[in-house]
Write a protein that binds this DNA or RNA. Sequence first.
RNA 1: GCGGGUGUAGCUCAGUGGUAGAGCGUCUCGUUGCCAACGAGAAGGCCGAGGGUUCAAGUCCCUUCACCCGCUCCA
Length: 523
Amino acid sequence: MTTTPKSMDAIMALCKRRGFVYQASEIYGGINGFWDYGPLGAQLKKNLRDAWWQDMIMNPAWGRKGPNGERVRCVPLETCIIQHPKVWAASGHVGGFNDPMVDCRETKMRYRADHLRLVHATNERKSGRFFAFIENDPDTLESALKKLGKYVRRDMGQGDTEILEFSALDMEEELPRVVGPHAKEAGTLTPPRQFNLMFHSYTGATAGEDDKVYLRPETAQGIFVQFKNVVDTTRVKIPFGIGNTGRSFRNEVTPRNFTFRSREFEQAELEFFCHPDESQDWYRFWRDFRMEWWKSIGLAGENLILREHDKDELSHYSVGTSDVEYRFPFTAPGFGELEGIAHRGCFDLTQHQQHSNAKLDYFDTTRGETLPNGGKKGERYIPHCIEPAAGLDRGALALLCEAYTRDDSRPSPEFLKLNPRVAPIKAAVFPLVDKDGMPEIAERLTDELFARFGRGGFIESDAKQSIGKRYARMDEAGCPFCFTIDGETLKDQSVTCRDRDSGTQQRIALDQVKVFLGEKLGM
RNA sequence: GCGGGUGUAGCUCAGUGGUAGAGCGUCUCGUUGCCAACGAGAAGGCCGAGGGUUCAAGUCCCUUCACCCGCUCCA
């Protein structure tokens, strides 16, 4: 078997050709950072989402016991894309995503405005030049002092210079007199510009600035905000998880790499709440299960890795974070993030408790001293949270990249080895020839398979053109099995079952097709 | 945001300032009957968009949009 390296161009061409992914608004020239799913892509992604929903919420971790020795319990939730603006202040997104940036037109450098400082000669603020440097950066400071000395034609000593913050500048009067940290000329810095990574809109028909709202940059915050309601209304007990899938929006500076970094994308997030003492165990439990899960739906192999973050990579509140990463053709030999499993401590609930003044702690009646009557005194605490947060679009893309195979020794060199569980086409039924009673049998079998498996994907049926061409078409669409009604079927009620990955054929009884397929699809 | 590259049929791509092309795919008819078969035919394009130069622009110039690659940035 001869194989050639996977080309992203070839994968993208197949995605378009077979209706997996289209460019959004393509007939208008497309729009940067947005992609639509065609019929097969939409079903592929739905199967991925359903698999996540099934294995993370309805039957978490395939029914296995958690580190506490009990069945893992999770409940679903569906929260709004638009939340109260204070949610994003509490989460840190409004502050963190809003660093004003300053560009230098001369050197093409970009600086964070709050990192810039200015030095100028004492008593010359009204007319003299300012020389910018970067906070805590000796090189640009030295350079700025040197340029200032040259400018005023004398050496600068103690007391001869004054330093001020960039934000203290009068942008109209004084900015034109500023020389950038790496620039030679004055006036090449732009005013600070907001790089707003959150999309915003306005509520109400006569909306003004006061009605500004944000499209969520992650689904997680909706869960934290409803944590108390779920606890109060559903009889869940710590430890338990809340799962949520849905669209999120980030105004990426550079959308890139097909659907990998899109401005509108879909997340599948679980927030698993537990006692602080058990949080490390649960963190390891979810980290390991998530890795196993991705393998189970077709990403097995050396293209998938689990990467534990280094200490200096961690957010200030995080005790531990791992990424499940996939080696995409465009990241190879490196990897791109599919999912992050973060130990978020009690950061989010604490933040929302402070900002909202709502009590978000939990009274745990299974803890504390044992009372004379045999019960427990109880313990009040803010739960810690483990967050497995997956990108469904990235997942779908990884599935497509992993499945894409080119084997020039096959009659149909390009095909998708999609795992049957996520494949958008579950099976195809072909009459070998479009006559002699075969179409009728094929139609009956198609109807049966539709009734049994149609909720998970398409059952294709096609009588046109040569059988080889029909197989090839199914190979490209990632359909795992084709059943062909032929002359023998008429005699002994058996059909040809053709396997996509190997191209091999076996005969099975017509009335056993459903059983066979049910086993293979896990349905 | 910067630099480089690419935009022509569903896909892959030719196309020298002078009538819009090929292969594959799609559809129809016929033949064949287990791996992109054969024959005949058909549909499908304002050459990414907008300006300009020219008697004449897919081709030259400008602008813009999208995608790819490399920087930069990145919760």
